[in-house]
């Protein structure tokens, strides 16, 4: 087994490189992704090695990036589109929802929409507005789209390659606050399927599930809870749409308690979906109602107060107390 230590940013870069080496039809499109290597340097050096036809510095228009990726897909190419930040995906929303999501169906399966839309998402980097949003639920809500998120360099490396290989369109959510954290990457063996949820920490009392940047927060909460004698099972969702419910069900059947964590506003969200679905699927094994720890129903706040908005260890532990204290 060959493993190397690298940041998530580097792992994505290496993953993109491997996908491009493997398949000449793969190309990257985005704003400032060539010479600059993207504002987060995820595509650093790729234009130099693969040329301007395969790493395209586009004119500044997200709708056009995705709209032309659709045409390229029809023509047999696999475009990986970079949205510079979460808050700038909305000009492309029309193309994503109206064409990307529906063309396989409308062409009766003649077309495949094997394209990837990379989205640096979530907050925690002290940025100004529109640079810290979590729009995943809009996409998860749309039939025809798949949504995934990585939380480790190893997953970043493999999941980006698996996404590019997929014949379905995938919204690939990258937790930007974790770009610079290092981890082991196994360069030979993919960890598991693209949509498989993974138990990051085994526990017995409460299942805590989330994705992207929340995974680290959940693990820290589990450490603290352990010291207080409560055992949390931490699950990294990875697949946001579809969600790997069998893995979640197995965990909740064991623990009997569920907390779903996310940065996005709580209402009509991924955590709402998880709690609702598990309430149905684990009707008789839940020992307490499932809870959500999420962002509030407000536009993402100015960064000086973003930590009050984002799920914190404290808020997760409060939820843990509530489900542990519950007597039905």
């Amino acid at each position: 087994m060959t493993t190397t230590t690298m940041t998530m940013a580097k792992a994505l870069n290496e993953g993109l490189r491997r996908a491009m080496e493997r398949d000449p039809k793969v190309l990257l499109m985005g704003e400032d992704i060539g010479k600059l290597g993207g504002v987060f340097r995820i595509t650093d050096g790729l234009q130099k090695d693969f040329g301007q036809d395969r790493v395209v510095d586009t004119p500044l228009a997200e709708s056009a990036i995705v709209g032309t990726a659709v045409g390229l897909a029809i023509r047999g190419y696999r475009a990986v589109c970079e949205m510079q930040f979460d808050g700038f995906v909305f000009p492309a929303f029309d193309q994503i929802v109206s064409q990307v999501a529906k063309l396989q169906k409308r062409s009766d399966g003649v077309y495949t929409m094997g394209l990837v839309i990379r989205l640096p998402f979530q907050g925690g980097i002290g940025a100004i507005e529109h640079h810290s949003e979590s729009p995943e639920a809009y996409f998860a809500h749309t039939p025809g789209l798949r949504v995934v998120s990585c939380s480790t360099p190893n997953d970043a490396y493999w999941m980006i390659q698996q996404s590019i290989e997929s014949d379905d369109p995938i919204i690939f959510c990258e937790p930007k606050s974790r770009y610079w954290e290092k981890g082991e990457v196994d360069l030979e063996n993919p960890p598991q399927g693209l949509y498989d949820a993974v138990v990051r920490r085994v526990g017995t009392d409460v299942t805590v599930v989330g994705y992207g940047s929340s995974v680290k927060t959940m693990l820290r909460a589990a450490e603290t809870a352990q010291a207080e004698g409560v055992s949390l099972e931490v699950i990294d969702l990875r697949g946001i749409a579809p969600i790997d419910f069998p893995t979640l069900v197995a965990s909740v059947q064991k623990t009997g308690r569920l907390i779903a964590v996310q940065e996005a506003p709580r209402t009509a969200s991924i955590s709402s979906e998880i709690v609702a679905e598990l309430t149905e699927r684990c009707f008789y094994s839940l020992r307490a109602p499932g809870l959500r720890v999420a962002g509030y129903h407000v536009p993402y706040p100015p960064a000086r107060i973003e930590e009050e908005y984002r799920p914190s260890v404290g808020r997760i532990l409060d939820a843990v107390d509530r489900v542990m204290d519950f007597e039905g």
């Binding site: 704003e31 510095d57 586009t58 004119p59």
Partner: peptide, 10 residues
């Protein structure tokens, strides 16, 4: 310039 993108691209 955009950020790095020259205006000739636009």
């Amino acid at each position: 310039f955009g950020i790095s993108t020259p205006s000739s691209t636009q």
